[in-house]
Design a protein around this nucleic acid. Structure first.
Lengths: 133, 133
DNA sequence: TACAACAATTAGACTTATTCTAAATATGTA
DNA sequence: TACATATTTAGAATAAGTCTAATTGTTGTA
């Protein structure tokens, strides 16, 4: 059974206000990794009253801090958001900068050695290349 | 023998103006991954006349487009620059966002399978965690 | 139900990073 | 030298994101 936006918010202890639900629903329903601007455009008509820019940014930050969504900084100059909480990697299309999620299993095995001062908690592989159309 | 900034610029077919040399020298001489602002502060006194903000940004873009330096977008909101052209990976210190270069060999082996539309040209591993002080 | 206490949202001003513009300088070549 | 081209410049403009202070919504308790 697929989790609803409300359920996900409750699971992370974030009160499900209409604004938060609408934004999270959008993020959970897209394969893209939208910027704050794109989120704002997408939810414009989803509530009786257009929500303010501050609310969109506040909400994205709140959701990110609570662990409900991920922030992606791969591209210069803007942050993108990702509701896919499964461990995964990214593929960046050099042609247009589009970012694709890759299931965690595309990396079958990785072995590395981090010495002395580095204590690794997580890692992520970013692939760059072309996506055949 | 270590390559000078001038030599590197010529190697990439970029005319070595004083401004470009000064900026590249700074980047080649630091382990950090400075932002445009940090570059600007660092080169402030290196030429008889303080160079303009536009020049710093222009130069960083020119160098990046020519392949002389890398752009790093790991952190939200600002771009960092890296004159280390060796293949390498990154370690992000969760505490302060500081980015460390890791030699390419810390990843001994990686095996992955990218199917259908993805044609990989490069990959990079980003590690997140703590750096012991 | 009524109210205090707190949480969330809002418009718009503000900040910060970066780009643009048009003029001024420098450089290279005939 | 003289012209074309490339580079640098100051400052205005843009874009992404944050802050402020006021307003609205929600919750728990008497």
């Amino acid at each position: 059974m697929i989790e609803s936006a409300e359920q996900r918010l409750s699971r992370f202890g974030v009160k499900p206000t209409p604004q938060r639900v609408v934004i999270l629903e959008y993020l959970m329903g897209t394969e893209d990794h939208p910027t704050a601007d794109q989120v704002m455009a997408a939810v414009e008509d989803k509530l009786p009253v257009k929500m303010s820019r501050a609310t969109v940014y506040n909400t994205l930050n709140t959701l990110h801090e609570a662990g409900v969504i991920d922030e992606i900084a791969i591209e210069a100059g803007r942050v993108r958001y990702d509701a896919n909480l499964e461990k995964h990697h990214h593929f960046v299309n050099k042609a247009d900068g589009r970012i694709y999620d890759l299931p965690h299993e595309v990396v079958n095995a990785i072995s590395f050695q981090l010495d002395k001062p580095f204590k690794m908690e997580a890692y992520q592989v970013t692939f760059y290349g072309q996506v055949a159309t």
